[in-house]
Structures are given as structure tokens and as C-alpha cells.
């Protein structure tokens, strides 16, 4: 199918590009690791305090790492004429946006999941709770990438060069953050995976999945004129 072919082509190109381009894929995960390590020192050695801080720290680190990587996800394709060419030649821009999203999830989301065990050790969460904590964080990474994607597309249309992505994404990422942190805290404290908060987080993620690709395409089209 044409859409699937384009999604694959774009995602594959972006992954190869980030691996080839002097470690671009490391940017998000290095930031994540540094942020988490500093927070652990900031909260000191008390195990209780660390455990309470675990969920907010993981979430903020994930949010910032994704925003760092995604804030300019469309700029380069606009600057080198790739997006213009795809649009003029009537390639499915929906496929393009989904491909870009998949690229971000692989390049940033993948390493974040790998880093989670290290975080759980630093924050005294314990290995048994790790499996419980992962679903909410993975869901959150998806939701936050979606929020960053539409903000980045609007920002590219305004020719803002990535400066306003964090502000534009805020109305979408704040509710995700609130329910996400609660869901992860509950998972750590009481081993509850499918809590009400997690259900809400899932609902928000599904909502974003439904609206973000379409709105991103719209914004990009406006920006190309």
C-alpha cells in the first residue's frame, strides 16, 4: 500500500540519517541520562525521597528529551526542499508525517526504554517494579511525541525555527504529564498498572493519535505556500 510504503521510506531514511549524522540519535538519550543523574543527586540519598521523585523525574526527562529531538523534526526537510518536493508531487503527506513520528519514536523512544532500568536503580525503585513502570512511560513517550509533532509542524509553518515548539506543545503535554506522573507513581507505590490515571493517559494518547497526523499535515501545507 502506498501509505505504508511512504511511512517506511521516511522512517527508515530518518533512522539512517540520525545514525550517520555524527550521533544525532544520542542527543536525546544523553540529555535524559544527565538530567536523571543530576536529579538523583539533587534529591540526595534518602530512599523515600528518591522513590517519590522517581516518577516526576522520569516524566520530565522524557518530555525534555523528546522535545529536544522533535522540536526541529520538520525544519530540515523544509530547508533542503524535500518536503516541498513531496508536496508538489502529491506524495501522501499523511504518510510522511507518520513516518517522521515513527522515526522519532525509534530514535528517541527506543533508547529511553533501554535507559529505564538504570533509572529505576538510581531511584531505588527496584527491579520488580520496573516492568510495572514501563507501560505508562512508553505510553507517555508516544503521547509526548505526538504533542511535539503537531507543535513542531505549526512552528515550521510559522517559520519559527523550533523556538516556540515547547510553548505550542504545552497545552497538549501538560495534561499528559499530570495523568502520566500519577499513573507511574501508582505503578511504583502500589503495583497498579491499569489504574484510572493510566486509562486516562491511554485515552489521551488515542485522541492525540487520531488528530495529530491530520493537523500536522494541514499546518505543513499552510507553511509551504
Amino acid at each position: 500500500m502506498a501509505l505504508r510504503r511512504i511511512v517506511r521510506a521516511v522512517a527508515q531514511r530518518d533512522v539512517v540519517l540520525s545514525l550517520a549524522g555524527g550521533g544525532g540519535w544520542l542527543q536525546g538519550i544523553v540529555f535524559y541520562a544527565v538530567f536523571v543523574a543530576f536529579m538523583a543527586f539533587a534529591f540526595g540519598p534518602g530512599e523515600d525521597a528518591l522513590r517519590r521523585a522517581a516518577a516526576p523525574t522520569i516524566w520530565l526527562a522524557t518530555l525534555f528529551a523528546i522535545q529536544l529531538a522533535a522540536s526541529e523534526m520538520f525544519i530540515e526537510d523544509i530547508q533542503d526542499g524535500s518536503l516541498q518536493t513531496l508536496a508538489v508531487e502529491q506524495t501522501s503527506l499523511l504518510g510522511y508525517v507518520i513516518g517522521k513520528l515513527a522515526g522519532v519514536l525509534i530514535i528517541v523512544g527506543g533508547p529511553l526504554i533501554v535507559a529505564a532500568p538504570i533509572v529505576s536503580i538510581m531511584f531505588a525503585v527496584g527491579a520488580t517494579n520496573l516492568a510495572i513502570l514501563l507501560p505508562s512511560v512508553a505510553m507517555g513517550a508516544l503521547a509526548l511525541s505526538l504533542a511535539a509533532c503537531v507543535a513542531s509542524a505549526i512552528n515550521a509553518a510559522l517559520q519559527g525555527g523550533g523556538r516556540f515548539t515547547a510553548i505550542l506543545a504545552a497545552p497538549l503535554s501538560i495534561p499528559v504529564l499530570i495523568f502520566g506522573i500519577d499513573a507511574t507513581s501508582l505503578a511504583i507505590e502500589s503495583s497498579q498498572i491499569w489504574s484510572v490515571e493510566m486509562q486516562f493517559l491511554t485515552a489521551m494518547t488515542l485522541f492525540l493519535m487520531a488528530i495529530v497526523p491530520g493537523f500536522s499535515v494541514l499546518a505543513l501545507r499552510l507553511g509551504l505556500e
Binding site: 550517520a20 526542499g81 516541498q84
Partner: peptide
């Protein structure tokens, strides 16, 4: 349509 724009739609990193 095949379009050759000013910028060549080339990824310099690839």
C-alpha cells in the same frame, strides 16, 4: 509531475 526546486531535496548526511 516531477519537480526540481531550487534546493535539490538532498540529504547531505546520506
Amino acid at each position: 509531475i516531477a519537480m526540481l526546486s531550487h534546493d535539490g531535496a538532498i540529504k547531505t548526511g546520506l
